[in-house]
Amino acid sequence: MIQVQQVVRDYHTGETVVHALKGVSIDIADGEFTSIAGPSGSGKTTLLNLIGCIDSLDSGEILIGDQQVSTMDKKSKTEFRRNNLGFIFQTYNLIPVLSAYENVSFVLSILGVPEQEIKERTMRMLKEVGLEGMEHRRPGRLSGGQQQRIAIARALVKNPKIVLADEPTANLDSKTGEEILQLMQKMNEKYGTTFIFSTHDVMVMDYAKRLVELHDGQIISDERRQ
């Protein structure tokens, strides 16, 4: 369970203060497939960053499970992210000098998983995302959709509680974007991982089982779908 309570986040640029989140509260249950939607500047990336423990809030609190993540120090946040969170980025953010296999397996390496287990889990995850046989290819030799599949495999290979995806289909054509969403949906159903993804694309919103809309740093709607 993720509990976001009265979260405020302001950004200061010179004399200007941007109120990115103005007292946002939301609870997300385990295994939910939630989309945070809204126009640019509505605060969806900020909300994802705060839940993902890569940004600090000004007031309010965030609990993930029974852990108060908003008050954690830098080291504890790093450790929390390493053990519990997976990330999928709009621009994939793969390491170009590593193969598909290595891009996925390195998250297990930093967790200290034994070599043999790394191999088994990585190969299984690459197969799950449809990249079997491409494990030795470097990102530069793969399409955008295939690269995002590596990113999904990388996010899921460590069995995280939560996967946060910031506009995961924004750099893909609609057909590939849909394939990626179907894959994410499949993984959500298969592993029960909580997925939270931001978007302003209507097609993407249609895939969400819960749609939270943000506008000017405030939640304007929260809709659960079948």
Binding site: T78, R81, R82, L85, F87, F89, I110, L111
Partner: peptide, 10 residues
């Protein structure tokens, strides 16, 4: 940034 987000320490 990606490495840090994925939990690699500084």
């Amino acid at each position: 940034g990606m490495m840090r987000a994925l939990g690699m320490d500084d």
